[in-house]
């Protein structure tokens, strides 16, 4: 068991209306290379904050403490990659990075890349990072250990809940996927476009040739999420983070997307962090489950053990609150007391 990512004492505080709100209060866990780890919790548990922190996507103004150690030494990137000089300098000690302003004007290649990324990662609160904005978005990843920071898009693929807001509405989806490949894999545009077509086939979009030229609004919700996944894995990231990636989809499409994620993760040997509010869905996919509550890790364990013998009362509560197809209907429970 080698850790791809070690999270130690991760603390995040947001500032809202002048009040500091803690979102994560010292969370520590290791993400094992090649595993499917689910992070579950209710609203306010910090599960999305954790995902955003790992991806370096926390909104400006978030205060971060603790360390994230990324094992880039085991990197098995398809080819060596020189990080663009425009990347913000990362102080190895304590999290704070020079903001994007320090990077002065980013190189042209980076600008395209970030534009593509922005298309993918737009739903940050309070930001409208349209393509026109270009440049490096504000990112404040926490301290990274001895190795260089993982780069979003190249090392980490991120799939958001709402593909309608994570895809650029005025750019053909093929181009959005190709941009990621072009930026991170040093491909020529025709190569990147061919890669985009292969990716659309891999995510099983019907008729990839015409899908390449389709705009997001011409696709269904499930198809858009397939496109977002194709873009997320375009550069062959080692870690795929799916943040409530199926929550806006209906049950049938959700099951299809979960199956797709499972297949792609297995085929590419990716590590998966699957963020969900749904303990049953998480259990159907994950090797291990981490339960967060109010910014703290309350339980972490193998899926089967955690489901069958939860150690923490809160985990038990989540299991009891789950209304499965074998649960005793509330109608009966009520009828008994009536």
């Amino acid at each position: 068991m080698t850790a791809l990512l070690s999270i130690r004492d991760l603390r995040v505080r947001y500032r809202r209306d002048g009040i500091e709100v803690p979102a994560l209060k010292g969370v520590g866990l290791e993400v094992v290379a090649g595993e499917r780890l689910a992070i579950i919790g209710e609203s306010g548990s910090g599960k999305s904050t954790l995902a955003l922190a790992v991806a370096g996507l926390l909104a400006r103004g978030a205060e971060i403490g603790g360390t994230l150690e990324w094992s880039a030494s085991q990197s098995q990137m398809p080819r060596s990659f020189a990080p663009p000089s425009g990347l913000p300098a990362i102080s190895p000690a304590r999290g704070e990075i020079g903001s994007s302003a320090d990077g002065s004007s980013p190189p042209a290649t980076l600008e395209i890349g970030e534009g593509g990324d922005d298309g993918l990662i737009s739903p940050l609160a309070g930001e409208m990072p349209g393509r026109a904005e270009g440049g490096v978005p504000e990112r404040r990843p926490p301290a990274i250990g001895e190795n260089q920071a993982p780069r979003l898009g190249r090392d980490i693929g991120f799939v958001f809940q709402d593909p309608s807001s994570s895809l650029d509405p005025v750019m053909p989806v093929g181009k959005q996927i190709a941009e990621v490949a072009c930026t991170h894999l040093e491909l020529t545009w025709p190569e990147a476009f061919a890669k985009a077509k292969t990716l659309l086939q891999r995510v099983r979009l019907p008729d990839p040739d015409s899908a390449l030229r389709a705009y997001p609004h011409q696709l269904s919700g499930g198809q858009k999420q397939r496109v977002a996944i194709a873009a997320a894995i375009a550069a062959g990231p080692r870690l795929l983070i799916a943040d409530e990636a199926t929550s806006a989809l209906d049950t049938i499409v959700q099951a299809e997307i979960v199956a797709l994620i499972r297949r792609l993760v297995a085929e590419d040997g990716m590590t998966l962090i699957f963020i969900s509010h749904d303990i049953a869905l998480a259990a159907s996919l994950a090797d291990r489950i981490a339960v967060l509550r109010h910014g703290e890790l309350v339980e972490l364990g193998e899926t089967r053990r955690l489901i069958e013998a939860p150690r923490h009362a809160y985990t038990r509560g989540l299991l009891e609150a789950h209304l499965g197809l074998d649960a005793k209907p509330l109608l009966d429970r009520q009828g008994a007391s009536a």
Binding site: I252, E256, A283
Partner: peptide
């Protein structure tokens, strides 16, 4: 049938 099959189950053996 598709809806029932797609509903996540806690007891499902993986």
């Amino acid at each position: 049938k598709a809806l029932v099959a797609a509903t996540p189950r806690l007891t499902r053996s993986r």
